[in-house]
Nucleic acid binder design. Structure first.
Lengths: 152, 152
DNA sequence: CAAAATTGAATTGTACACAATTTAATTTTG
DNA sequence: CAAAATTAAATTGTGTACAATTCAATTTTG
């Protein structure tokens, strides 16, 4: 009774998903030593990127931009608040919403972060063109996936 | 005193890292409803893929294949054991190593999983060729990143 | 060969992710 | 307008990730 070999399509090295998962974690790992001096984790850095771009968003708006829900963002934002980088305030117009704003320290941190993208680009050994192409392919993939699998 | 606009290279939409991070989480999300009937999470599915391919690896070998450490794998493997899908046994030759083996149920699960890759391919709306190209680009990126940033 | 160094898992502690529920505020509707 | 429905955060619970430490087993070395 010989055991059937695994069919090709179940081989780990065939999986796009694993290539994505591994690449994402590897890149995040590259950020770690660069963000550590700023006192930020990678997801916290993403939140800061959004706020540096547009300050004063609600938790919901941040979540839409990063595709994260309040279960992830609420504790993360509390840590950023404890670190003195953002403030959290209920909105006057609608008390259900919480306004996230950069503090002076949070805004100032942008300067210390401004060298990071270039540093990363070097670490990844890709040309600017290669990076843009790959990035846009991944965006397209994410966009197409956005439509749910088969919710009838 | 007007606030400086964020420089282009700090814009979220410019980041390859975020495109990767978002795509990876989106794809994992696609797996969720497919793996739920099998009682697996996505990282658990990856472990099963490795074991279906080669049974009887140590925690360390699994970790090398998936780029995960014992802090992640030990609890994950205990859950797979509790689910009756794998066994964990100290190796006779070297008692430090723990051998992970599929149970009959673990091996049997492969048949129920065999349709998943095709299902995913459809959800991603990519041709087989596009998938392979993207996968190989990501593998190359991960491989290049493997070399540490600048550990002198 | 015994002390020192190394190795492999496990453990501890922090920080995501995300489903599901809860709570409070607002909007809709009969 | 008041009850019902909806919405936004927060909370709860489970499961990763990963750094750092611990512990036991094996290797290396003086």
């Amino acid at each position: 009774m010989k055991r059937q070999p695994t069919p090709d399509h179940l081989l780990l090295d065939q999986q796009l998903c694993f290539a994505l998962y591994a690449a994402s974690r590897s890149v995040t790992g590259l950020y770690r030593p660069l963000l550590e001096p700023l006192g930020l984790t990678y997801p916290q850095y993403l939140v800061m990127l959004v706020l540096w771009e547009q300050d004063g968003l609600t938790v919901r708006e941040l979540g839409q931009r990063l595709q994260l829900d309040s279960g992830t963002l609420t504790p993360l934002l509390k840590r950023l608040q404890t670190a003195g980088l953002v403030s959290r305030q209920r909105r006057k117009e609608d008390e259900r919403e919480v306004d996230i704003r950069l503090t002076d320290a949070g805004l100032a941190l942008r300067d210390k972060a401004s060298g990071i993208p270039e540093c990363l680009a070097q670490c990844m050994q890709l040309s600017l063109d290669q990076m843009q192409t790959l990035r846009d392919e991944l965006k397209r993939l994410t966009r197409q996936i956005q439509l749910p699998p088969s919710e009838d």
